[in-house]
Simulated assay, not measured.
Amino acid sequence: MAGFTLLALLGVLAGAGPYLTRWSWTGVDVTAFSEPPSADHWFGTTAAGRDVYAIALRGLRRSLVIGLLVASAATSLAGITGAVAGYLGGWADRLLLWVIDLLLVFPPFLIAAVLSRVFAGRAGTAVLLTCLMWMLTARAVRSATRALRDEGYVLAARQLGAPALVIVLRHVLPNLTSLLLADATLNAGAAIIGEAGLSYFGFGVRPPDVSLGTLIADGAPAATVFPWLFLPPVILLILILLAVDLAGSGLRGPSDTASFRERR
């Protein structure tokens, strides 16, 4: 509950926060350059006279959207792939496992950096992170499906002539909802870290748009001189990761969370 409450508060801040100030994230105050926090600029201003509060909330909104998109897409892809592999078994299971193991061999950050020029922008970054994050969850879903495929309701559906895809979608995946929801929250945290890391090194969101990663990269060189440029995006990123970790740990349970982190 603490995790979801914090996520909800961050979502409200990202959505409604920009309307609490008269400065937009693209606006420039020609009378305030590198100014510390004040009544007019709550988080201070940049060297170009832009409001740090408005820019930080823009980055927060971008990071939350990318995390939500990647978590939803990666968990859906992993759920369907892992459930099909675990239910069918045989050559289909071996083929899908071979694909998963092959993708796990490649270093994800290096692949993301190489392909970042092709998958440019917010949507491209979300697609790229989705392609690199679904494999471990798929293996967990496959193992859970193998334990479910001999359950009475699955055998009854099979005896009634239900197609394999229908059984997977209507009987197997609904019984894995708690697993998928927990993994989705943890995937969201991993996606936000991945996006922030890519943007920090110039491979993710690019100017003129911003994200928490680009803001941290811009503020890091002047962190000791102008801390208001560096601390707001760092604190927001920490709060997001804390929220999704608490939510995911609460959904999964202590023992399952420990085993999941070992797989990670």
Rank of each mutant, 00 (worst) to 15 (best):
A78L: 10
L60H: 02
T185N: 10
R62Q: 09
V30Q: 07
D93K: 07
R117Y: 09
G49E: 07
G44Q: 05
L129V: 10
I80D: 06
Y200W: 13
G202Y: 07
N175R: 15
D150K: 04
A74P: 00
P233N: 03
G194F: 01
A140Y: 06
G204K: 06
W98R: 15
P174F: 05
P221N: 08
G219I: 03
L9W: 12
A56V: 11
D183R: 13
D256R: 14
R22I: 06
L229N: 02
L9D: 06
I193E: 02
G124E: 06
A71L: 07
V105M: 11
R62T: 14
L20F: 12
V244M: 04
G82N: 07
F106V: 15
V12Q: 00
P233E: 09
P208K: 05
G250F: 10
F4I: 14
I66M: 08
A247F: 10
V244L: 07
V105S: 07
T257I: 00
L160F: 15
I167M: 05
G79L: 11
E195D: 06
F119S: 04
T46Y: 04
L236K: 00
L60A: 04
A223F: 11
A83P: 00
E151M: 11
T75E: 09
S63G: 06
D245S: 13
S76E: 02
V52R: 07
G248N: 04
G197I: 01
S76D: 00
A112K: 02
L165G: 10
A222P: 00
R62V: 13
I66G: 03
V28D: 06
T125A: 13
G197D: 06
L155G: 08
A258C: 02
R264C: 05
R263N: 02
G161A: 09
A196P: 05
V84I: 14
I80K: 03
D218G: 10
R22W: 05
G89D: 08
T125E: 10
H41F: 08
V84C: 11
L155S: 13
R146Y: 03
P163R: 08
S178V: 15
L236H: 01
P37R: 02
S259A: 15
T31W: 04
G15I: 11
E151A: 14
A78G: 15
Y19Q: 12
V52A: 12
L181C: 13
G44V: 07
I167V: 15
G248P: 04
L110E: 14
D101F: 04
L104I: 09
R142F: 06
A223M: 15
L169W: 11
G152M: 10
P37Y: 08
L179M: 11
A188P: 01
V105Q: 06
T5H: 05
G49P: 06
F106R: 09
V84G: 00
L20D: 04
